[in-house]
Simulated scan of single mutants.
Amino acid sequence: MSLRRPTVKGAFSFSNPAVRAWLFQILAVVVVLLIAAYLIHNTITNLSNRGITSGFAFLDRAAGFGIVQHLIDYQQGDTYGRVFLVGLLNTLLVSALCIVFASILGFFLGLARLSDNWLLRKISTVYIETFRNIPPLLQIFFWYFAVLRNLPGPRQAVDAFDLVFLSNRGLYIPAPQLGEGMGAFLAAVLIAVGVTVGLYRYNKTHQMKTGQLRRTWPWAIALLIGLPALAHALYGAALHWDIPALRGFNFRGGMALIPELAALTLALSVYTSAFIAEIIRAGILSVPHGQHEAARSLALPNPVTLRQVIIPQAMRVIIPPLTSQYLNIAKNSSLAAAIGYPDMVSLFAGTVLNQTGQAIETIAITMSVYLIISLSISLLMNIYNRRIALVER
């Protein structure tokens, strides 16, 4: 009896599901490329007909306008490229501030929502249900026009020890200036941190071998205070402080936090903290109740139970939606244009676009910046999520 190898009929025919799947994918890619080619050709033709020169050469031209807040040196004669850096840093500043404040406030609100105290639980509930249901733009307008713009003028500013001044022009605080002893100070701090880490690991190893507990924190405090103080005494001050003072109709010197930055930070922090609070609450409730009972059976105090047992297990539920809220903060920071805060949208997609007419380039740069910021936040949060993930063995 002869054995014949079975043949697969229609292996490359359209009736084969795998073949159809590949054909449809290839067709979809071709359609997308054709649409992109048409849009690019149409854009180039329209720009040529209107005599508009495309490209990024405009970044080397002088801007010719001032910016009220800049984290780096900026003058009116600087280039549009410098304007881009100023707008980028301002966007990163407000995003970082809002992420920190919203996280801290949301964490405590989430815990308060689960508190046994009736009043604390109801206050946190009212806070969450109120602020998360009001659009962020309206909250920005409220803090800016109804609160900060109604503060007293510079001559009647609220001051603290003649160092900090709050008025409708902003918050003025002392600005640090680098001193001659900064190098020695940084070296002392690095040495103190390195010795502390080494001492902590040595004490941990000693405890694992002998069972004897050796405290690291007294030596850590002594090193972190003593070595920088010694560097200060030997090499001079690491920082000098520029104190703001009222001169004429406004303050001069120091560091100014403009009302637009304060309004944006307050609004986005309050708005996003309400969502983060619910994420924290959901994460804690996702931990099985048996974990709470096991901790009680070991007579662990509630703070220790929360810090060592509940929160580590809840983080795997908290991190993914928390990442989405951080992304929302970065994207919602573009609402700064509504009150004139000099961020990427206000400067580049607004002022620079109007002055140069380079709409495609400025919008593309602005979109790319927000895309890169969002991808960076996602990458960092995913790395952190993998590090804290519970691995089953």
Rank of each mutant, 00 (worst) to 15 (best):
199 L>N: 01
368 S>D: 07
164 V>C: 01
307 R>T: 15
181 G>S: 09
348 F>C: 00
62 A>E: 03
349 A>D: 15
223 L>E: 06
352 V>K: 00
118 W>R: 12
244 P>L: 13
336 A>P: 00
243 I>D: 15
360 I>Y: 03
61 R>Q: 11
142 F>Y: 15
201 R>V: 08
75 Q>F: 11
28 A>Q: 13
127 Y>E: 11
187 A>F: 05
18 A>D: 14
122 K>T: 14
48 S>N: 12
315 M>S: 12
96 A>Q: 12
293 E>D: 13
75 Q>L: 05
293 E>Y: 14
326 Y>K: 07
356 T>C: 01
42 N>F: 02
56 F>P: 00
361 E>W: 01
275 F>M: 07
382 N>A: 07
174 P>G: 09
44 I>T: 08
385 N>Q: 14
122 K>M: 15
353 L>V: 02
72 I>N: 00
148 L>G: 02
31 V>N: 06
218 P>L: 05
103 S>F: 09
257 L>H: 11
81 G>K: 00
244 P>F: 13
238 A>I: 07
240 H>Y: 15
237 A>T: 10
167 S>E: 15
274 A>L: 04
377 I>D: 13
65 F>C: 05
295 A>R: 10
74 Y>A: 06
23 L>T: 11
150 N>S: 12
125 T>H: 10
180 E>K: 11
337 A>Q: 14
289 H>R: 14
101 F>P: 01
111 L>W: 13
187 A>E: 03
370 Y>L: 02
101 F>M: 05
253 G>M: 12
216 T>F: 06
218 P>N: 08
315 M>F: 10
181 G>Q: 06
3 L>K: 03
117 N>C: 09
219 W>M: 04
123 I>Y: 08
294 A>W: 01
366 T>S: 09
285 L>G: 13
319 I>A: 05
225 I>V: 08
337 A>H: 02
32 V>K: 02
332 N>D: 13
77 G>D: 07
113 R>F: 12
7 T>P: 01
90 N>P: 01
144 Y>S: 04
356 T>M: 03
342 P>S: 09
64 G>V: 10
262 A>R: 11
220 A>W: 06
227 L>F: 11
